[in-house]
Design a binder for these strands. Structure first.
Lengths: 156, 156
DNA sequence: TATTGAATTAAAGTTAACTTGAAGAATTAC
DNA sequence: GTAATTCTTCAAGTTAACTTTAATTCAATA
């Protein structure tokens, strides 16, 4: 088993891939999305810092919490100068994430109780049904698929 | 204002579009997805039944609850012979939907409390962090984007 | 009847988060 | 030193839920 870990400066994408479980293509994609910003060696190969593994872990965990890449990028942008999240940063960001989750849960619970009120009804009328909220055409953005649980919430 | 509502047999797509607020292209798409099955007149134009408006309302409301078209198709498939959901059907289906929502809420709450436990921690370690659950590669289906809140739940 | 408005199909575009493939360059292993 | 890996870029494909466009045909109105 060869040592492709740290050649003189920085980690190779293959090594980072192994350590995080992310595929190289996903890691390159995250670079396109500016979630990681590796350096390059003389011949153009990516060289990652040790802290990038932590950074990518942050990305994966945040995704697990249900946040989009755009949201994660925003969260990372609140960090001073391209720094990888440390303990204090995580405390701050995760508190914010928690508030967003709370809001999502509350929204789902409200929907759930509206449904409960409608179970016996069966009117299915777009005019009167409490379950149907006409999405205002004006506010719709983009044309891709709508999110399963409403448009993404913005993080502060 | 012309009366394009019911010419001899059935409603035109334009009329159904007006009544439901859905665009004609969306209604045609739902036909591709076999959520509605209109007849055709001699020259090939779609002719909808009055009950199709109700059927489409069902679709829209179910989407508002967070269900995918595939899930809605499954739910409609439980109805005897292509019938539009009536009050009894709705009671049965909405009870099932409610259970799915409950499960989703419970899942989010569990995640939320795990996050709470991690706020002070900040380890962000893929090995030990309770927030990171390695998705088993084996179970992954398809290659499109993952759902924001986990893979879609199947409706009995 | 002529024109306008509505409908039809088929193909391609859109977002999100990646993957797959091709073709070539750099690195590593032997 | 040469073969086998790994890496690079760029373009195109994938899911979901539709929209947009194009080229026509049908239906309704004046």
């Amino acid at each position: 088993m060869p040592n492709k870990r740290l050649e003189n400066r920085g980690l190779t994408i293959g090594y980072v891939s192994e350590r995080t479980g992310l595929s190289p293509s996903a890691i390159r994609y995250y670079e396109d999305e500016r979630l990681v910003l590796p350096e390059r060696n003389e011949s153009g190969h990516r060289r990652y810092a040790r802290s990038d593994i932590r950074r990518l872990s942050f990305v994966m965990i945040s995704q697990g919490l249900g946040f989009s890449i755009a949201e994660i990028r925003e969260a990372l942008a609140t960090l001073p100068e391209h720094r990888t999240p440390n303990k204090g940063d995580w405390a701050r960001i995760s508190r914010k994430f928690g508030a967003v989750l709370d809001a999502r849960i509350a929204q789902m619970q409200a929907l759930r109780s509206r449904l409960d009120g409608c179970i016996g009804c069966g009117c299915l009328s777009l005019k009167t049904c409490a379950l149907y909220n006409k999405r205002d055409k004006a506010a719709r953005r983009g044309q891709g698929p709508r999110y399963l649980l409403g448009d993404p919430v913005e993080i502060d």
